[in-house]
Design a protein around this nucleic acid. Sequence first.
DNA 1: CGAGAGGCAATTGCATGCACTTTTTGCCTT
DNA 2: AAGGCAAAAAGTGCATGCAATTGCCTCTCG
Lengths: 234, 234
Amino acid sequence: MSAKRGLIRSGTTVDQMVRAIGDRIVTGVLRPGEKLDEVSLAARFEVSRTPVREALGQLSAMGLVERRPNRGAIVAVVTQEHLTSMFESMAELEGICARLCAERMTGSERRALETEHQASARLVRLGAEEDYEYFNTEFHSRLYRGAHSTHIQELTATTRSRLAPFRRAQFRLAGRLAKSWQEHDAIVTAILRGDGAAAGKAARDHVSIVSEASAVFAVGDQPKAATMTPVTSG
Amino acid sequence: MSAKRGLIRSGTTVDQMVRAIGDRIVTGVLRPGEKLDEVSLAARFEVSRTPVREALGQLSAMGLVERRPNRGAIVAVVTQEHLTSMFESMAELEGICARLCAERMTGSERRALETEHQASARLVRLGAEEDYEYFNTEFHSRLYRGAHSTHIQELTATTRSRLAPFRRAQFRLAGRLAKSWQEHDAIVTAILRGDGAAAGKAARDHVSIVSEASAVFAVGDQPKAATMTPVTSG
DNA sequence: CGAGAGGCAATTGCATGCACTTTTTGCCTT
DNA sequence: AAGGCAAAAAGTGCATGCAATTGCCTCTCG
């Protein structure tokens, strides 16, 4: 019976469900406001309702889903105000990370940051949005790690994942790719010369601009869409 | 059956369990590293294991408990490094809140802040630690609310609750009461004159000092038993 | 024709039971 | 006597079943 869920990854069934459902929320497969029916989810993942319920509870604790007692769970729908607040927090958190990076990054971390950053310049010239998005994520992850503060890293990561559904298509905006790189450049430069204040400000500004870019896609009233793709996973 | 759990408050059983267990962790009744046996907890609260399990899952998602697959749950035990990181984050978060307060607090919020702050001065003169602790909590809550940013409020509140078990007895330290008030005073003054930078710095410093004061009680290796406590309280 | 009450279907909430994993204890071997 | 192995005991993980709440539909009365 251990072969049964070779489909999904390791860990307990509940963990798998948390990841599976959480991924689908973060990646936008499940959209804000969409109803999360326990029996459907259980059937879809071929488990009983119990682990599904536990997973929904944990996701609720993480803020990704909203649970109304006796009335089921839905993908968390954030108000425009809360969304703004999350971007604001993100800007502050990234600012802190950047400042701490400037103060604390080791030599090899600094070198790796600059190397990767310079490498990504090529993708901008090519207009390779998909690939740049990967580098972008990696760039920000480096910033979080470079702060050498596990808890700030946690806060930043969770906030970032909660924002993920709303920042998706940002690079499709005209010129956003090049602008993003320039903003990264300002952050890297400040970090490399150890200027914490400047790095912090550059990072805050960077997120603020992303925030504005994403505001275009801000929602609150997504179509309920019965899309609900077939899981696959693996 | 609704009378059955009149002991605890309303909401679903799971919610009650989350609050009940969470409270016991935050208030130090359950100590870091302590084993959380599902059947014992279920018996203790007169519910079945199911809601207990769900509650433990949610508390795990909140970071208050740690779950080892197939090996039970324990109250989250933080390393010295992580503890430092949390205090650091707390300092930064409070700094942000204070800065935003200076920029955004409404007139009535400012007045209320100052009034309450001045009122608490009396408690310092009396050396009323218990009562001052209440005002202290209220003071910080005002700072979080005054930032007018729901998400920063969330981050701050959860971080604060995770730190609670480690900051308990701070006011018992000689002179800490008066020092705390003076630090609050610096924050209030800066906020009232709208100096965001100064307010942020004052708040950061305040938490940093609390951090040092709490470091006395910091542990990473609590004995499993009920020894080791300057913490008393409860 | 509209509004309210009652009942029915659907869904959530919790308890119980069984399977599997880990840990402990006791016996056997060296 | 000490170490290791095995079997049992304890405890977690998940499935299933029943009770209770919600939402909807219908039927009735104004």
